[in-house]
């Protein structure tokens, strides 16, 4: 029960500062799950992120996996609801207001000011997952190759995930 309460409080609060979406909250999820509450190890966190990337659908599903790992089915549901409900309620209330202030300068300004923070947080997420997952030269090579292929190629990420799984199974990572 203690974990469920912690999940509801931590993820519920996080929901309201998750500017830029689920990709930007991975560092905070890591801090909560690994450093503060010791729900899992660094490596397990990275594996759960890996699994969440392989699941079709929104990447917010990482919180479902963290919840499941921490407190079973109740934890999974609590984590998903806590992460989605507060922000959904907020956007539900503010949607009409937003359409009214369309094109105004201060809206544009706020939007611009948020971008660098989202960029920094996504890069921090990548760094944290790399730190937890890549323990060998082969792993670093796969991470680097993935970055290059995504930036300069056109391969669907699911193929890359499949290839990564095969490389892993072949003992190259």
């Amino acid at each position: 029960m203690k974990e469920i309460t912690e999940i509801l409080l931590e993820f519920g609060a996080l929901s309201l500062v998750a500017f830029g979406g689920a990709g930007t909250v991975l560092p905070e999820l890591h801090r909560i799950a690994v450093e503060t509450h010791h729900w899992m190890s660094d490596a397990t966190f990275s594996y759960l992120v890996a699994i969440s990337q392989a699941i079709p659908g929104p990447n917010v599903i990482i919180v479902t996996l963290i919840g499941w790992h921490t407190a079973g089915l109740a934890g999974a549901l609590a984590a998903t609801v806590a992460m989605c409900a507060p922000s959904s309620l907020l956007i539900f209330i503010l949607m009409h207001f937003w359409e009214k202030i369309r094109g105004t300068r201060w809206r544009l300004t706020i939007q611009t000011g948020i971008v660098p923070l989202a960029v920094g947080l996504v890069l921090a997420s990548g760094f944290i997952v790399t730190r937890g997952a890549d323990k060998s030269l082969g792993a670093f090579a796969i991470t680097a190759a993935t970055v290059l292929i995504v930036l300069y190629g056109k391969l669907n990420p699911l193929w890359l995930i499949g290839i990564g799984a095969i490389f892993g199974l072949a003992g190259l990572v």
Partner: peptide, 26 residues
């Protein structure tokens, strides 16, 4: 564990690439 290590290495790359792509706007 081996499969997950492979996928996690790719996942890290996917996230970094997304960040770099967003950074181009900056």
């Amino acid at each position: 564990q081996a499969v997950l290590r492979g996928i996690a290495a790719v996942a890290a790359g996917l996230i970094i690439a997304m960040g770099l792509r967003m950074a181009a706007d900056l």
